[in-house]
Design a protein around this nucleic acid. Structure first.
Lengths: 345, 345
DNA sequence: TTGTACGCGTTATCAA
DNA sequence: TTGATAACGCGTACAA
């Protein structure tokens, strides 16, 4: 059996409450006893049992993190390590720890989350995705427990704390960037609109095209969902059009690499023949040839802010639920070219 | 305040022990009371407080996962989601849950791990890396708690349970594969030998070259550590050699993409001019052009086996510590070419 | 400044 | 088949 507070008390010839007070560094204990008790604690190698502490304090100092583990999510390469990095930078500063709810199926995740929440194993929850009619999110809403969504909620925007980029604006920025380089025939290749982020990005793209008085060609928009073959097919179609695009906006770096491969296969040069701009600024964007101009969504920051938000809510349950939009920034590399001659345009 | 076992007992007009027995589905309780109590449980939305249960049962049914979050690790793209997927596939089957110890610095990780272990918050630990003289691993060894390393321990091989690939053998396999395609001048580009896995792969490469009676050229071996510029430089040097290599073995898909980019920059064609084979079979390998022939190390399986091993140890502390080597498999794609004419060779 | 005693929500032991 | 009660390890109101 491990050493408990009793053992310390006995060996130090004090009561367990005294030991407890020393642990919390109570000012009511004389420096002398503190020194003595601490010495005994060290000698015995004592560490407080956090389970017992949780039980009596009715708080766990633990945050639950919910993530989907679908294959498509896994593709987001550095997203997971980066966001966890951001989250833990904050949680470890405030001495919170982390519990995970992953799972293959929606059902499994749901079980994990309810177990965690009902079982009183966490004080708050961060959800790493946003999806329409998601049972987990609906459950959390009813459960009273503080939670934060990383992504834009599909409804109850004002009642849910969330941390996100302004993905619509970011897509507009990316598209405007391309337009300012002189491009007029611009395609979009990305994911379908099941997840909010995909929906917002395509919306932003459309908006920017229209705002600039360009023609919005529906056959310039392709959904490939990270699929290699579909990507090749989409690019082939796009490039065999009589007035083919001179630039492509990509929804993320994975899709961008697929398109890069497809263009390379067709011996089409980047950025000479086609410019491409992408999202996420993941590792991939930094090591392709040419390296990708991409919108950095600052995943690490997103993680940090989500963690700050949930800890704040846990500490002060009645604080108003304020949500946060993290700015995005375009990282210029070598995949975009300025069009100059009329001929090119 | 949440609903407790007391509330259920009161409303059901039974004692709390009866409720507790219903929860564990004890055969000593009549079907009738079971039905009644379960109904009340449902009505009140009662869920057992797992913290209290942990306290009395002296077990948490929770596994701690330790990972490094250094930038180089983050590069492993799909490693983290995949290994977590494998682990949780098993843990959720056995109704274990998961606690995370990440951290920017070695010091932070160490704090997290000790807190988790001393605080009795986990029954066992999985360490997702293997490194020489690592304080966390040394601590775990002394702490009595069951733990499993995903990777090959640097010492005490027989006293530590670990799950790994035979990375030396895998590198030999990859090199032999290339050799059997007729290549004789084969280069290796990878990471330096700080981590065990890198060390073992370069060792296997050397061995295969020697075993096949080929000449081991030291200037055919380059360390680039996932760095783009260093990768370009290494490739440039290699390709400007009078008798340049016809094939390159890469330590992982990230380094492979860098080399692919560098070769593309030099207008050297794959696999026509140079064949490349890589490790990990991550998403990247499936979406480059050409797609990469790569050694699948089966990260998901590694995660599963690590989870199985730790749960077994938790359940039966005295079981002998058997370690496991997960077989690797070469996934053939389009980045390797068979050499036929003497001229090519 | 320190100690006593109770309670946190369970499970387990012993009676009934 | 059920109930009363003592743990589990800790924090804290109340006493001293």
């Amino acid at each position: 059996m491990a050493v408990t507070i009793k053992d310390v008390a006995k060996k130090a010839n004090v009561s367990i409450s005294t030991v407890s007070r020393v642990l919390s560094n109570s000012p009511k204990i004389s420096e002398q006893t503190k020194r003595h008790v601490r010495k005994v604690i060290k000698e015995l190698g004592y560490h407080a049992n956090l389970t017992a502490r949780s039980l009596v304090q009715q708080t766990t100092r633990t945050i639950g993190i919910v993530m989907k583990n679908s294959s498509r999510e896994a593709l987001h390469t550095t997203f997971l390590p980066e966001v966890l990095g951001g989250i833990t930078a904050i949680t470890s500063k405030y001495e919170f720890s982390i519990r995970l709810a992953i799972g293959e199926s929606e059902e499994e995740i749901f079980q994990d989350v309810t177990k965690m929440v009902q079982g009183k194993q966490v004080d708050g929850v961060i959800v790493l995705y946003s999806k329409k009619d998601d049972p987990v999110i609906n459950y959390l809403k009813d459960s009273q427990i503080p939670f934060v969504i990383l992504g834009r909620p599909t409804k109850d925007i004002n009642k849910i704390t969330f941390v996100d980029n302004d993905n619509r604006q970011a897509a507009m920025d990316a598209t405007n960037y391309i337009i300012q380089l002189g491009h007029k025939r611009i395609a979009y290749i990305g994911d379908d609109t099941k997840f909010e982020v995909a929906k917002l990005r395509i919306t932003g793209f459309r908006q920017a095209i229209l705002d600039n008085g360009l023609k919005l060609q529906e056959n310039f928009i392709k959904y490939i969902n990270g699929n290699y073959e579909e990507g090749f097919e989409a690019v082939r179609e796009l490039m065999s059009l009589p007035n083919r695009p001179t630039a492509i906006v990509l929804s993320d770096d994975i899709n961008a690499l697929i398109v890069l491969s497809a263009l390379s296969n067709l011996a089409i040069k980047i950025p000479e023949d086609v410019s491409i701009i992408s999202f996420n600024n993941s590792t991939i964007a930094r090591i392709t040839y040419p390296r990708l101009t991409t919108v950095d969504v600052q995943v690490y920051q997103l993680g940090q802010e989500a963690a700050k938000a949930i800890i704040e809510q846990v500490n002060e349950p009645n604080v108003i639920k304020k949500s946060l939009l993290i700015p995005t920034v375009i990282i210029e590399r070598e995949s975009c070219k300025k069009l100059t001659t009329v001929n090119e345009i």
